[in-house]
Design a protein around this nucleic acid. Structure first.
Lengths: 146, 146
DNA sequence: ACTTTACCTCAAGTAAGCTTGAGGTAGTAG
DNA sequence: CTACTACCTCAAGCTTACTTGAGGTAAAGT
């Protein structure tokens, strides 16, 4: 295990993703890499955390574009610090809370709604949850709701 | 507004979906319909609720295949009763609780994880949330986690 | 009757998030 | 030096959940 640079295969193995996924993320601008003399990718160690964060965010239900946008707030002139990463996770924490609240309200409305005669697009609380939330919260733009 | 049968356009309008979506759901076996003399679709009123339920379930993050499976538990020889629908929503309520719990745990782990040095695939709580949940809950198979 | 609107089918297109394959080069173990 | 494995690029393919378009028929309005 060298401490300086990683090949794409090594990164893939460490991150639990396929090589093709790393190619794909690179093409989409989510990760970056340099090349060695033979045109092979050589990664700096912080790519491991980047990929881990991408995967974590995906589990939250955030799409790649939004993840890319969030990652773009990291400094590009230096290796991100622990604080940089924590700022990111704090942002997502807000989104996650919103998502949890959304699902919670959904659950609380559902029992009454699905079984009842309420099918009105304009009155049913389930149909109108999105609007309610949109009217209520101001930040948390990154989270796209299902 | 007639009380017996609906054309595809009327259903689409009432449900807030496109005609093509209804065609699509029919093709996928999520809804059913009969035809009139001119081969045009004529829907029974309960299709409105079906579509509403499909949309509601999708908002929860359930995919069409699972929704189809759940809808398949409804009686096909008679119009579903309120109780039939409530059984369905109770099922999903379980799933929804699991999903909420998942995201809650995720949120609680995240702050510590993303910022920390923890990148281990075998130790990081975020990486292993799925397994934990799989080991813990027994039912709730319909929900597919992100 | 005539025109417009709604509907029909089937094929193809779209977006996200990857994976697979072809054809060829680089790095490494013996 | 020779295998063999890893890597490279680019194009095409896959899944989900639909949408769009072409070419044609049915129903509804006047």
């Amino acid at each position: 295990m060298q401490s300086k640079e990683w090949s794409v295969g090594q990164v893939a193995k460490r991150c639990g993703v396929k090589v093709s996924t790393l190619h794909f993320y690179e093409q989409k601008g989510l990760i970056h890499t340099s090349r060695n003399g033979g045109n092979q990718r050589r990664y700096k160690p912080d790519v491991l955390r980047r990929v881990a964060v991408i995967k974590a965010a995906q589990k939250m239900g955030i799409d790649l574009q939004s993840i890319k946008a969030a990652l773009a707030t990291l400094p590009n002139n230096r290796t991100p610090t622990t604080q940089d990463w924590q700022r990111l996770s704090a942002q997502w924490n807000t989104d996650l809370n919103a998502r949890i609240e959304y699902l919670t309200r959904f659950r609380d409305s559902m029992a009454g709604c699905i079984g009842c005669g309420c099918l009105s697009m304009t009155h049913c609380p389930i149909y109108n949850l999105d609007d309610k939330l949109a009217a209520e919260d101001s930040g948390a733009v990154i989270l796209n709701r299902k």
